[in-house]
């Protein structure tokens, strides 16, 4: 994986978000740098859900926050409907940002414990209007209703009086009041119980249909991501490995890392094979010193000398299925780069 390239990007007219060559670096003290996200490109069409998966620390949240310019990425462009957020002055960015909202993992701590739910959900309206409280409440009540919270009961309560699942629904209501174009959900169900998780996932699907939402859905649970996403992008150590229509990705993973992830999922079926997948015993390398060439090569059973030398570029496997690997598990179109013409049997 661990690849760059933009072969997988679609016509910009068809998309609402387009991220190109996104790089996010953080200083790590002693003059070192964390390469959290390196050269990622992707786009999202209106009404689509893009899933982002990968191991902890691979840069999923950083990517999500970079879309919101929190913080501004080190380089690269983030275009919402053709407008580059990175190039905007602070005020117009503030405006543009209302079209993009974010929901976080920890439902309880993302709500201010001292404020009442009615005010929390009305918060974005207090900034952007309508400023009249009488006009705000119907909007807020409508949204609370939409997420299955009784507005009149919740209005004057505080977050500690609600369960984790309820808090998450309140966060979703807060994100929705601005009628955003795009919602970035960073592990919205990871802290929840399985039964509550299913409630929230079903609800997100309904809201999506009702309000025509476009979602970026970050999670580490591959089954959850498959369930909710139209397309899924697999990330590894700050790079994008593979991006594909969901069913196709899970049926025909082309990247060795995707195969490793899929093979690791515990399946609720006693007959399922649970032996070591591809013999993976590796550890995630440090984002302070990512490996040369393909970043996955230190754990990849197919890695060869070229993988250490040349960074794989995105190449087409089929319509809407792209992989960044020199030796994909299913055949893929060659990249314009001569090095990728070397075919190596698996």
């Amino acid at each position: 994986m661990a690849g760059s390239g933009k072969a997988h990007l679609r016509d910009e007219a068809d998309t609402i978000l387009r991220v190109e060559d996104l790089n996010v670096e953080f200083p790590a003290g002693r003059g070192r740098t964390v390469y959290a996200v390196s050269g990622i490109s992707f786009d999202i069409a209106k009404g689509e859900t893009l899933g982002l998966v990968g191991e902890s620390g691979c840069g999923k949240s950083t990517t999500g926050k970079a879309i919101l310019q929190l913080p501004r990425p080190t380089s690269g462009s983030v275009r919402v409907k053709g407008n580059d957020l990175a190039a905007m002055d602070p005020e117009s960015m503030r405006q543009a940002r209302t079209g993009v909202q974010m929901i976080f993992q920890d439902p309880i701590s993302s709500l201010n414990p001292r404020r009442m739910i009615g005010d929390i959900v009305a918060e974005p309206l207090a900034v952007w209007g309508p400023h009249d409280e009488d006009k705000q409440w119907p909007i807020v009540a409508n949204m609370l209703d939409a997420v299955g919270i009784d507005p009149d009961v919740a209005r004057y309560k505080r977050s500690h009086e609600f369960s984790g699942g309820q808090c998450q629904r309140i966060s979703i209501a807060r994100a929705l009041v601005m009628e955003p174009e795009l919602i970035i959900c960073d592990e919205p169900v990871s802290a929840l119980d399985v039964s509550v998780q299913a409630q929230i996932l079903n609800m997100l699907e309904d809201l999506k249909a009702q309000y025509g939402l476009t979602l970026v859905f970050i999670a580490h649970d591959l089954a959850v991501v498959k369930n909710i996403s139209d397309r899924v992008a697999v990330m590894y150590l700050g790079k994008m490995c593979e991006i594909s229509e969901s069913n196709e990705l899970y049926d025909n993973p082309a990247h060795p890392y995707t195969a490793l992830l899929l093979g690791s999922i515990p399946v609720p079926d006693p007959m399922a094979n649970i032996d070591d997948v591809l013999g993976d015993e590796g550890e995630l390398p440090s984002p302070l010193a990512p490996p040369s060439g393909c970043r996955f090569r230190t754990r990849c059973p197919l890695a060869d000398e070229m993988c250490a030398r040349v960074e794989p570029q995105m190449r087409r496997v089929s319509d809407d299925h792209y992989v960044a690997c020199h030796h994909p598990l299913v055949s893929a179109d060659p990249v314009g780069d001569p090095s990728s013409e070397v075919t190596i049997s698996l």
């Binding site: 399985v194 299913a198 649970d221 959850v224 369930n227 139209d230 399946v267 609720p268």
Partner: peptide, 16 residues
């Protein structure tokens, strides 16, 4: 209620 990889995307979950 658990989503499973064997199901196609957007399979409705039977939430409890």
């Amino acid at each position: 209620s658990i989503p499973k990889v064997s199901q196609p995307k957007h399979t409705r979950l039977n939430a409890i």
